[in-house]
Nucleic acid binder design. Structure first.
Length: 259
DNA sequence: ATTGTGGCCTGCCCGC
DNA sequence: TGCGGGCAGGCCACAA
């Protein structure tokens, strides 16, 4: 599902929309428009303007609009970005590869005939005018060791804390499992109980894993991913993986080397 | 303030 | 062959 690597790919794709005159914007399903702004106001803000930048903050894509407005795009777990017919990410776990016109929830048309489309079979994603970026923690890809330590100052399970977008932004369920597996830390560990050495290890693995998965092209390309299933075994030591529920999410981890 | 829980949304897969 | 139930998880509203 779209975690940081997918949204980074979407951001890169969206750079191709910068500087082009927008002559139409349509929210085909009003439920896809989030936040306080009226759908018509949001669309009217775009028409006649241009995007001037494509940024990413965690899993939030922000398209800066000429004149000072910001268009926030969230992808939920099944959302795709399409620019001029090019899909941002080839394969999306848990989503469908079929093409249904009804799944095009938000369509921006340019005067050159091209289109920027947010496609989402389910409506878990959405677009929002001037999203509250301050509510998001520091981006996981730029996180310093001190910021990680601050984000984990809690008695909550370390995995739940890693996925809390207000503490650090960009880590979802699959990447949280992958990072903790690589770092050898049990997801159930209290976040605040990590020793300085463990914090350092986790920080290194977080950065390395994100770089790795961005390069490989998706959050589902982790080494643990193929074994996140019934009867799955640890790719490192062969132990039978444990399945538990942490922070409301299914978690797979190795009881032999994750402590 | 912090933390936990349930609901939203719907394609897909499994068992009957 | 069709059908219904359960599952997937990002995000938000709400409760304690």
């Amino acid at each position: 599902m779209p975690e940081l690597p997918e949204v980074e790919a979407y951001r890169s794709l969206a750079e191709g929309a910068i500087g082009r005159l927008i002559d139409d914007a349509v929210a085909t399903d009003v439920r896809f428009v989030r936040g306080r702004a009226d759908p018509h106001v949001l669309c009217d803000t775009l028409v006649g303007a241009k995007f001037v930048a494509a940024r990413r903050h965690g899993k939030l894509l922000v398209l800066d609009v000429e004149g000072g407005a910001h268009l926030g795009v969230r992808f939920g777990m099944t959302g795709r970005l399409v620019l001029d017919g090019t899909v941002g990410v080839d394969r999306l776990v848990y989503s469908s590869d079929r093409i249904e016109p009804a799944w095009d929830r938000f369509v921006v048309s340019f005067d050159d005939g091209g289109q920027l489309i947010v496609r989402d079979p389910r409506l878990l994603g959405g677009v929002e005018l001037d999203p509250d970026e301050a509510a998001l923690g520091p981006d996981a890809l730029m996180l310093t060791p001190a910021q990680l330590r601050a984000a984990l100052a809690s008695s909550v399970a370390v995995k739940a804390r890693l996925m809390d977008q207000r503490r650090l932004a960009g880590v979802g369920n699959l990447i949280a499992d992958e990072v903790l597996w690589r770092a050898g830390l049990a997801p159930e560990r209290r976040a605040g109980s990590l020793s300085p050495a463990e914090l350092r290890r986790l920080h290194r693995h977080l950065r390395a894993t994100l770089d790795d998965l961005v390069a490989r092209g998706g959050s589902h390309t982790g080494d643990l991913m193929p074994e996140r299933r019934l009867d799955g075994h640890c790719p490192r030591d062969g132990a039978l993986l444990i399945r538990t529920r942490i922070g409301g999410r299914t978690s797979w981890w190795c009881p032999r080397h994750q402590h």
